[in-house]
């Protein structure tokens, strides 16, 4: 396993010892309204089962006991299509999921002994997200992408942002990064800029002009030569990418969230450029935010 990956293994006591074929398995679908529907099977003897969504502690933070994690409970209803299966729809009316990774559990209830069980993923029908048919986003933007963790459990990645700049195609040519995208939840005004800020407290910033392509679409170019690399500073240095829509509007993170790919980092990969004493490449962070990595050669 990639050591830099998110802490995806959860050796929790409850249900963690059961082999996967004894755990409940959930199929899921995202429909054109953005509703995520889960259908859980393998819950023999369950009575009024509930779905539990538990926020996984961030990588590098202290371990939190499962029972102490932020948890949302959702009632499961019998599936109208298949007896013995249970269904829950997560949409605007359901729980508000903060940004992060939400592990999916079930509390079976009824005659079942033992406690809560982790859920393993079945078929995930995310074709709506893949086709670019993401429904017109409602602000604040709420994105939920169900996925299989590295150790094979069902989890949901969630983002919740008051405004959002969705990155589209990126082009790296002649020492320049060109980013196209779409701004949601804020309006591009006069003096809109793109901003690169070096990660870390008080990190330097670089601004660049931004072209308004109409209806929220934008393009900006970042000249790599304008990104200073401080030999005394961190190496590699990570520069996070934002938009400043103009006026007093708060800056907006540039990210790629509106499709079916839960982890962009290894799938959307861009060329590395050598420039003087450094190499530079744009990439998506573990949270699918756009950033630029600058390292000494």
């Amino acid at each position: 396993m990639n050591p830099s990956s998110v802490n995806d293994t959860t050796p929790d006591a409850t249900g963690g010892d059961l082999p996967k074929d004894k755990l409940p398995r959930a199929d899921c679908t995202v429909d054109a309204t953005g509703t995520l529907t889960l259908e859980v099977g393998g819950l023999r003897g369950a009575d009024r089962p509930r779905l539990l969504l538990r926020l996984r502690p961030k990588r590098g933070t202290e371990q939190v006991a499962v029972a102490d994690r932020a948890t949302h409970e959702v009632d499961l209803a019998p599936s109208p299509d298949e007896p013995g299966r249970w269904r829950a729809a997560l949409n605007g009316g359901g729980p508000v999921l903060d940004e992060g990774r939400w592990d999916v559990w079930v509390a079976p209830g009824g005659s079942t002994t033992g406690g809560e069980l982790r859920v393993v993923p079945g078929a995930r029908d995310l074709r709506i997200l893949a086709s670019g048919g993401f429904p017109d986003p409602v602000l604040p933007l709420e994105v939920r992408v169900p996925y299989a963790t590295k150790d094979g459990y069902f989890s949901i990645r969630a983002w919740r942002r008051p405004s959002h700049a969705e990155a589209g195609d990126l082009t790296v040519r002649d020492g320049t990064l060109t980013v196209t995208g779409r701004l949601l939840g804020a309006r591009l005004g006069r003096g809109a800029r793109a901003l690169l800020k070096r990660r870390g407290k008080g990190g330097p910033q670089v601004e660049t002009r931004l072209a308004d392509e109409g209806q929220g679409a934008f393009t900006f170019r970042a000249d790599y030569a304008d990104i200073p690399h401080d030999v005394q500073g961190p190496d590699p240095a990570y520069w996070d990418v934002y938009l400043k829509p103009g006026g007093r509007t708060a800056r907006v993170r540039v990210a790629r969230l509106l499709d079916d790919v839960a982890d962009k980092k290894t799938v959307f990969v861009y060329p590395t450029t050598e420039l003087g004493q450094v190499t530079i490449r744009p990439y998506y962070t573990l949270d699918n935010d756009l950033a630029v990595q600058v390292s000494a050669r």
Partner: peptide
Amino acid sequence: EELGLYNHVHLMGAYSPIEAEWVK
């Protein structure tokens, strides 16, 4: 990268079950 196709061609990694990917 050499062909400049990094916006068009993606190496997705291993997926199982694959049927959910075919239907996309």
